Simulated assay, not measured.
Amino acid sequence: MISSGQVVDSLATPLAGWLLDCTGKRKLWHFSGSLAVALGFSLIFSMKYTDLTSDILIYYILNITLFQIGWAIVQISHLSLIPEISRSHAHSSDLTAIRYTASVCCNMTVYLVTLFILQQNVESQAVGPRDFYKFKEIALIITFIGILSSMFFYCGLLGTYSDGYETLREPEDVNNLNDNNRHFLKSVVMYTVALMYMASRLFTILNLIYMPLYIDERSTTDQTRIEQVRETIATVPLVSYIASFLTSILLKYKNGICNDKIIYAVGTFFGLLSSILIGIGVPTSSDSELYIIAVLIGISGSTTMVASLCLTANFVKTNGHGGGMIYSIVTFTDKLISGAVVLLVQNMQCTPRSLCPHFYENVLSYVCGVVSIIGLSSMVTLEVKTNRH
């Protein structure tokens, strides 16, 4: 079911971008996608537990499909609205930073709502089929918050502006802002920006997936700390989220201090530093180093994500292309490569697990380190391409 959802999401993303650019009705498409997300997400968690049959499987796949199509439309329309409604590059950067801050707040809200609901009327420590009504309640609460937020969003949308943007274009295109003879797929700049965004997302995803497994892996070498693993697995990602949240707030004030490329380079440096610290080895006697690494990961994910999205908005605004297709290509690259990398990493895992006692440590150190280097290399390529004489 999850695989089917990922496939649908990958296919719907470029289609959503094409439809948005063809019609230009970004607000209307966003509203339609929001309805699909609200309906699909609610229905996924509304069915009472029963034996898995073909009819039940079809029910879930159809609702997941509805949700993923709506999600693709909402994501692309929301991103492409940023360069459309921004007054300037500074305004676009502010909106991007605020958007990322809101996404971190959403993640924390989901965790808090889930924690509160699951603690009500606890019959056993294990979470099982009897708790289906709790997850239904969680889904409905989150959906209500989402619908309410969307209503405020539509009420707050203003007009369209187009001045004050930093030029992010190849030298041969400087005098051809609206040259339709040069398709955006022929632009090296777009691919470098897409790689920067992909590297940022992949770095965050790999740490999100493998950090808990790495913490569990560390406990196998120190039997006296097994009882603390459950708490550490919960608190380390929380510290990373808090660091990411605070950083995203500070990024709102970056304009006039340094540009997006420097911000991205700084974020990549923090990411590389976290990979190096993990590679050197974190002592099992204390978790303080883990929390330092979590802070570095949170700062890296926030800065690189905001910077890459700001650069994407610059490319859209200063090249005269439709934002829908540009954002869909950028996010499609992220989904395609991220899924492939995670699948490759899983297939490299040793069987039995004891043959590779430091497998997840190596993933967070070497794989995440290489991803950071790819992002940094893409940023350097972008700098060379846009400043060539």
Rank of each mutant, 00 (worst) to 15 (best):
I142V: 13
M379D: 06
V239L: 00
I73F: 07
Y197H: 14
E123D: 12
T160K: 09
V8F: 02
Q119H: 14
I61P: 03
L213S: 10
N121R: 11
Y360R: 05
T221F: 09
L195N: 03
L20Y: 07
I257H: 10
S302I: 01
Y291C: 07
A38N: 02
E227G: 13
A243V: 04
Y161P: 03
M379V: 15
L15S: 06
G256S: 10
D9Q: 02
H91E: 03
L158I: 09
V188A: 10
C310P: 06
I226Q: 15
H30C: 04
F152W: 10
P83S: 14
K25L: 07
A72Q: 00
L213N: 11
I61L: 07
L202W: 06
Y191H: 12
Q120T: 02
R87T: 15
V266C: 12
V104H: 05
I226M: 13
L246P: 11
I142N: 04
I299W: 01
G40L: 02
C356F: 01
G267T: 02
I215A: 04
F184K: 04
V188M: 11
V113F: 02
T235M: 01
S288C: 07
K48P: 02
L28I: 02
K27D: 02
M190H: 08
K27P: 00
T167S: 07
A307M: 07
H389E: 09
D131H: 05
G267F: 05
I299D: 14
V193F: 13
S92D: 08
S372D: 00
S286P: 15
D216F: 06
A139L: 01
S200L: 13
H78M: 11
I262D: 05
D260W: 05
L79H: 09
N387S: 15
S54K: 03
Y264C: 05
K186E: 14
V282A: 03
L290F: 10
S378V: 00
M1K: 11
F41Q: 09
R169Q: 12
Y214Q: 04
T235C: 00
M305K: 01
S338I: 05
L238P: 03
K25M: 05
A313F: 01
A194I: 07
E227N: 15
L62Y: 05
V380G: 01
Y49V: 08
L213H: 11
V104A: 10
T192P: 04
V384F: 13
N63M: 12
L57Y: 14
L309T: 14
V266Q: 09
F67M: 03
L168R: 00
A265R: 05
Y366R: 08
N107A: 14
Y197M: 15
L277R: 04
V342K: 13
A16N: 01
H78L: 06
A38T: 13
I292T: 03
M211D: 03
I262R: 10
S32T: 05
I293M: 08
A313Y: 00
Q120M: 12
T109S: 14
N347G: 10
I147F: 06
T318P: 05
G375S: 11
S46Y: 07
A194T: 06
I142S: 01
I233C: 06
R87F: 07
R353F: 00
S42K: 00
L344Q: 12
